[in-house]
């Protein structure tokens, strides 16, 4: 087989997926980019090369605020999720007996299979003023008055963290069990304390897994509409919520496109910030 036919055959295999991605991902993205440069006059769309929508992002207070809200929520969720998932994965990997680990993992991610829309709604019921949490705390005498939990940023963050702790526990666990115990043993033989071993040996070795999980958390969280919409009580709007309002109430595709590109810009920055640890094609 000559190299020519070899290459041609290879192309034949890759082409369908490439065409698919180009036609239904790259092309729509380019159209969306063009759309973000169009404007609405009354109700009709005018194509062109206007920067009006981008100017609005910075001049209209509520749009800029939406970007800030989205960023604050996403960064909080990512950090809290990693900080909760790491110890959980650690306990499952190193404290739970081997034969029970699979079961523990399965139990950890089982609620992942409740419908995603319903999961947020369930949190709303849990956090309500007369909900389970307030009821329990009142009964235990820990609080005198019901706490305001639902319809707040706290509720949005809780709903997100619940979901991402499940996912991150899985990825971090996979990383931890791949570690050879020899590394830790070697570090200890060389006189490192438990904390030093963790900081200088285990953490760096598990960092790619953590960063990959954290990045996916960031992407999924910043683009999510349902969780803040159900749990946030509209007390503040995230970028996806504003996008949906622009689409639903006035079909402002140009502004929605500009906001989407802004969102992508943020994700790209996050990607560049952690690119050296990312292993996306080796999930």
């Amino acid at each position: 087989m000559s190299l020519g036919t070899e290459t041609r055959a290879g192309w034949g295999f890759v082409a369908p997926a490439l065409l698919w991605t180009t036609a239904f991902f790259v092309a729509p993205f380019l159209v969306m980019a063009a759309m973000s440069l169009a404007t609405l006059e009354g109700r009709s769309l005018v194509w062109g090369l206007h920067l009006d929508n981008y100017a609005r992002l910075f001049s209209q207070g509520y749009l800029l605020r939406a970007v800030a809200v989205s960023l604050e929520i996403t960064v909080t969720v990512t950090l809290v999720s990693v900080l909760l998932a790491y110890p959980l994965a650690w306990i499952i990997a190193f404290h739970v007996p081997k034969r029970w680990q699979r079961l523990a993992l399965l139990l950890t991610i089982l609620p992942f299979w409740t419908s995603y829309v319903v999961r947020s709604y369930a949190w709303l019921l849990v956090l309500a003023r007369e909900g389970v949490v307030n009821d329990t705390l009142l009964a235990l005498g820990l609080i005198a008055e019901p706490l305001t939990l639902a319809n707040t940023r706290f509720a949005t963050v809780t709903g997100f963290v619940h979901f991402f702790v499940m996912l991150l526990t899985l990825t971090i666990y996979a990383n931890l069990v791949q570690l050879s115990p020899n590394y830790a043993r070697a570090a200890r033989d060389l006189g490192a304390s438990g904390l030093q071993t963790f900081r200088h040996v285990i953490l760096p070795l598990t960092l790619p897994g953590i960063v990959t999980g954290a990045f996916l958390t960031f992407v999924l969280c910043i683009g999510d509409y349902i969780t803040p919409q159900i749990l946030g009580g509209n007390n503040e709007l995230t970028v996806p919520q504003v996008i949906m309002v622009q689409l639903g109430r006035r079909a402002d595709f140009p502004l929605a496109s500009a906001l989407s590109l802004m969102l992508m810009g943020i994700v790209t920055l996050a990607y560049l910030a952690c690119a050296r640890w990312l292993r996306l094609d080796r999930l």
Binding site: L124, A128, T148, A150, N151, I230, G233, N234, N235
Partner: peptide, 12 residues
């Protein structure tokens, strides 16, 4: 405390 659609308001 919140701004909500039909069901969110009912729930609240």
């Amino acid at each position: 405390r919140s701004v909500g659609e039909v069901v969110a308001s009912q729930t609240a």
